[in-house]
């Protein structure tokens, strides 16, 4: 039996091949529509949700329940002696709470499950997962991994630029007046994660592509402080040509060893809307 297993929520938005290659356990969130309940990534994708929302209908997203976490951890504990599970930020989802309760329940059976609140979403969590996997493969202990993750999460810069505030309003993140103002004055809000909470950062005005270019430039402006090992461009419903332009723009400001383009999960997509993307990187 292997020593340490790394598991995470599906909203970490890492490519599926990465999970398979590194034997990362993933637990899936759920999207509820008016006709059913669907598993993120396996049954419903980001494109499906965008189409659904653009037809004027609403969805709800749910983290797995405590029982589902227990069942998930149980299955992972058949392969590993102990588990480190990295969750989406506690302030935006119940997953950390449910996972912690599940871990507590399993502790009674002497199972060792450590739950980490990433204080991020999307590939912000992804960075932590990759770090954990690397440390595990180098033979580090669970405690070391946990400590490093707690330290690393303060250095992760998770932000996204959205074309408008429609989806943020639908999900209650911003009031309607903010959405109306964005529509009227062609404002493009930037969503940032600060101390585990979603905040509206800067707001760009005017043509969306120009705003995106400014956002990329600003995100990478202090490139001396950025860890150039890896960064993610995580997007929702962007075309290939648009993403290529973003990559080219990012390359102008900062050369990364790996600049990985990933698609956001359906859960994340339902909160941002089409044409949203983010540059997610880590400070040194």
């Amino acid at each position: 039996m292997k020593k340490i297993g790394i598991t995470t929520d599906c909203v970490c938005d890492l490519p599926e091949e990465y999970f398979l290659l590194n034997d990362i356990g993933v637990i899936y969130f759920y999207i509820t529509t008016d006709s059913g309940r669907f598993c993120d990534m396996t049954e419903v994708t980001s494109e499906n949700i965008i189409d659904y929302l653009e037809s004027g209908r609403k969805v709800n997203t749910h983290a797995p329940s405590v029982e589902e976490y227990i069942s998930f951890f149980d299955s992972q504990l058949e392969k590993y002696e102990e588990i480190i599970h990295i969750c989406v930020s506690d302030s935006i989802s119940l997953s950390y709470r449910n996972a912690s309760l599940a871990a507590l329940t399993l502790k009674i059976k002497s199972a060792r499950v450590t739950v980490v609140d990433s204080e991020h979403l999307s590939t912000g969590i992804g960075h932590l997962v990759i770090k954990a996997v690397n440390m595990r493969d180098r033979g580090k202990s669970a405690q070391n991994i946990f400590n490093e993750l707690e330290s690393m999460k303060k250095r992760i810069r998770t932000s996204f630029i959205a074309m408008n505030a429609d989806y943020l309003n639908i999900n209650g993140k911003v009031p309607k007046i903010a959405k109306d103002l964005c529509d009227t004055f062609r404002l493009h809000p930037v969503i940032v994660m600060r101390n585990g909470k979603i905040r509206i950062g800067r707001v760009y005005v005017g043509d969306y592509w120009r705003s995106c270019a400014k956002y990329v430039k600003r995100s990478l402006r202090q490139h001396g402080r950025i860890d150039k090992t890896r960064a993610f461009i995580t997007h929702v419903g962007c075309t290939v040509s648009f993403l290529n332009k973003i990559r080219a723009e990012a390359d102008k400001h900062c050369k990364f060893d790996e600049l990985i383009t990933t698609k956001a999960s359906a859960t994340v997509s339902s909160n941002c809307g089409k044409w949203t993307f983010g540059i997610v990187c880590v400070n040194k």
């Binding site: 309940r37 669907f38 049954e43 419903v44 994708t45 499906n48």
Partner: peptide, 22 residues
């Protein structure tokens, strides 16, 4: 029917079409 359909594909390798219906 209240479901979703999606596709994964790699050029030159193959495609997978998947649909789910409640």
């Amino acid at each position: 029917m209240g479901g979703f359909i999606n596709v994964k594909s790699e050029y030159g390798i193959g495609s997978e079409f998947r649909f789910v219906i409640p």
